[in-house]
Write a protein that binds this DNA or RNA. Structure first.
Lengths: 196, 196
DNA sequence: CCCTTGGTGGACCGACCGGTCAACAATTGC
DNA sequence: GCAATTGTTGACCGGTCGGTCCACCAAGGG
C-alpha cells in the first residue's frame, strides 16, 4: 500500500512524555520534541496531531501506566495495610531522591495548566477519582483484614491518604532532602494508618 | 531634581503578582504585565528590571505577606491547637472555592519553575523552612498547653501538617468541590492533631 | 528661564515559537 | 515497472515573545 512508519509509536510517546515531565508543557518546544523523538516535525504532526494533542497522549500514557502500577501494587500485597503504607511512601521510593525532585507528571501538569486547559483539568479529575476509588477499595480490604478500624469511611480515608501523598510530592519538588522527606512520609503513614 | 514616578510601586507589584498567580510565569507576557500595571515597557524595566526579576519581586511580596498572615494567625489564637487546625483548613477557607482553585502562588511557581530556576527553588526552600519553623513553634506551644501529646517531635509534626496542607492545595487545583475538600481537610486535621 | 535629571511610552528589533507544505522516499497492487 | 498511497524531511511562514532605544515630558536648581 504505502510507506510504513519507521518508528515505534509507544517508544516516541514515552520519550515525549519524559521531555514534558522534565521541562513542563510551555517550556518544551517543538524542536525539543523533534530531538527526543528522532522524528521530523511533519511526521510528528502526521502521527499525533499538534503539540497539545501530543501532550495529552503523553499525559494519558503516564496516567494509564501509573494507574496500572498502582492497581498492581494494591492488589498484589498480601495485606492491604502494607500496600496503603507503600502508597503513602511512594514519593520517597527512589533512594537518591531524583524521582522526588522530578515529581509527578500529572501533578506538574495540573499546576501548570489546570486553570487554562480544560482537557488537562478533566484528566486530573479522572485520575484523581480513579486513584481515590482504588485506594478506598484497599482501605475497605484493610478493614476486613482487621488492620484498620471499622468506624472510618474508606473513601474519606483514601482522600486523606492521597492528599498526604501529594503533599510529599510537593515537598520533594522544593528539593527537601530525601531523608527528611522519608521521615515525614513515615509520620504521615503512622498518623493516617494507625495499627489498630 | 527630576520627574517623579507616576505610580505606586507596591500597587504595581501586587497587580503583577495577581497576574502571575492567575496565569503562571511563562504564560504571562510582557504585554499582560503592561496591561495590569498600567505602565509602559520602559518604565517597567527601569523600575524593576526584566521579567524574571519582576517575577521574583512579586513572589517575594507574596511569601512575605503570606508569612506575615501566618505568623499573626498562629500567635493571635488563644490556644495553639486551634491555630494549627486553622492552618490545615486554610486552603478551604474560601466559601466558593475560588481560592482553592487558584492555589498558592509559591506552590504554583515551585511546580512550574523549581527544576529550571535556582532563584525560585531557593525561595521555595526558604519559605518552606520558615513555615515549618513557625508551625513547629505552635506545636510546641500546643504541647505546653496540654493539647498535644508530649511524645511527638514538633518539627516532624509541623512537616506532616505542611504536607497535608499542600496536599489539600493540590486537590483544590484539580477542581475538587469545596465541600469534599473541606471534609478531607477535617479528616486530616483530626488524624494529625488528636485531641489528647 | 533654561539646563539637568530621571520617568514615560511606544515604535522597533532579532529570536524563537508552533505550524504548514511541497518535494521526495518507500511500500503495495496491478 | 508503474501508479497510487502514505511517511519523511526540513525549509519556510506569520505571529509573538522578551527586551532595547529614543524622542518626549515633568520636575527642581541655578
Amino acid at each position: 500500500m504505502a510507506r510504513p512508519r519507521q518508528f515505534d509509536e509507544e517508544q516516541v510517546i514515552r520519550a515525549v512524555r519524559d521531555q514534558f515531565w522534565d521541562a513542563g508543557y510551555a517550556a518544551t518546544s517543538l524542536e525539543d520534541l523533534v530531538r527526543v523523538s528522532g522524528l521530523g516535525k511533519g511526521s510528528l504532526y502526521g502521527a499525533f496531531g499538534d503539540k497539545h494533542r501530543l501532550f495529552l497522549k503523553a499525559l494519558r500514557e503516564y496516567t494509564d501506566t501509573s494507574g496500572g502500577y498502582l492497581r498492581e501494587m494494591l492488589t498484589a500485597a498480601p495485606r492491604a495495610l502494607d500496600a496503603l503504607r507503600a502508597f503513602v511512601m511512594a514519593p520517597v521510593n527512589d533512594p537518591g531522591g531524583a524521582a522526588a525532585r522530578r515529581g509527578c507528571l500529572m501533578a506538574n501538569s495540573t499546576y501548570e495548566l489546570a486553570t487554562s486547559d480544560p482537557d488537562v483539568l478533566a484528566e486530573a479529575r479522572r485520575t484523581y477519582e480513579a486513584t481515590t476509588a482504588l485506594v478506598a477499595e484497599s482501605v475497605g480490604r484493610a478493614q476486613d483484614e482487621g488492620d484498620l478500624p471499622r468506624d472510618v469511611d474508606p473513601v474519606e480515608t483514601a482522600r486523606a491518604l492521597l492528599a498526604a501523598q501529594q503533599g510529599l510530592v510537593f515537598m520533594g519538588r522544593t528539593g527537601l532532602d530525601i531523608d527528611t522527606l522519608t521521615a515525614t512520609a513515615r509520620t504521615l503513614a503512622a498518623k493516617l494508618l494507625p495499627d489498630a
